[in-house]
């Protein structure tokens, strides 16, 4: 099939960018979206043009590196799917496809479709961990965790940090990302000890990074490749409110 692409090209952090048109034919429906871009890049190389830069790594939906806006949607038209798991059978011959980077003030664009998501790392650094140094751990079965609790913690911990939640949020809020981590850790008995400090620090960091407010439109949970529930945002708010009231 043949597609008409409009791709965001930008030189670096400070330069502006614009949408550039490309025609790509010879696309097979079995290709993944990224393989389609590989194909285009291969042709650009032969013409001596700079390739379209995009982040990608595992190409099996788990590393969280890939992520772009495809036809105005985070990770493209499917829900619960990363860009690398999107295949060309979701498009029709002759379609026009708009490809842009994830946009948010906290995700500066580096070049073309590559963005800097280190703001997520900073949120985790602020408190998204359990303070257990190597050597301190007690015997693992001495901490009993109900089956359902472990499963619920897993649901939250499944976040791959791709940033689709921020990209699709009209407010560019990182509430789903931050709340998934808070929920994961507070659900577990090991993580409860530091929960008040953690939630305050992580939310302050989230603000400092320049993310917007969550207004509960719930677009994030629709586009999340791991289908993380926006109920976690409720839990984060609960933990925050609790910390506000009870913390000394």
């Amino acid at each position: 099939m043949k597609l008409y692409l409009k791709v965001w090209r930008q030189e670096n952090r400070t330069s502006g960018g614009s949408m550039i048109d490309y025609e790509v034919d010879g696309i097979s429906e079995h290709m993944s979206f990224l393989e389609m871009l590989d194909l285009l890049n291969e042709r650009l190389i032969l013409k001596g043009e700079r390739v379209i830069e995009f982040d990608h790594d595992c190409r099996e939906g788990i590393c969280g590196a890939c992520g772009m806006m495809i036809n105005g949607r985070a990770h493209g038209p499917l829900t619960g799917t990363t860009t690398c798991q999107l295949h060309m059978r979701s498009f029709k011959d002759g379609d026009t496809v708009y490809i842009e980077p994830f946009r948010a003030a906290a995700f500066p664009i580096l070049r073309d479709l590559k963005t800097d998501r280190s703001s997520f790392d900073h949120i985790i650094q602020a408190g998204g961990y359990i303070s257990a140094s190597t050597g301190q751990a007690p015997e693992s079965n001495s901490i009993l965790i109900a089956h359902d609790t472990a499963e619920a913690a897993f649901d939250a911990a499944a976040c791959i940090g791709c940033g689709a939640c921020v990209a699709t949020c009209k407010n560019s809020s990182a509430a789903l990302f931050t709340s998934a981590k808070i929920s994961h850790l507070v659900l577990l008995p090991q993580g409860k000890t530091e929960s008040a400090d953690r939630v305050i620090k992580m939310i302050s960091q989230m603000d400092a990074e320049g993310f917007g407010h969550c207004t509960n439109t719930e677009a994030c949970e629709v586009e999340c490749p791991q289908e993380i529930s926006s109920l976690h945002i409720g839990r984060m708010n609960y933990e925050y409110n609790k910390a506000l009231i009870l913390r000394k």
Partner: peptide, 17 residues
Amino acid sequence: NKKANGTKYVYDKRAKV
């Protein structure tokens, strides 16, 4: 929130979700 948005999407269909 406007400040957090950064640059605007050229083609935006986020309203669908």
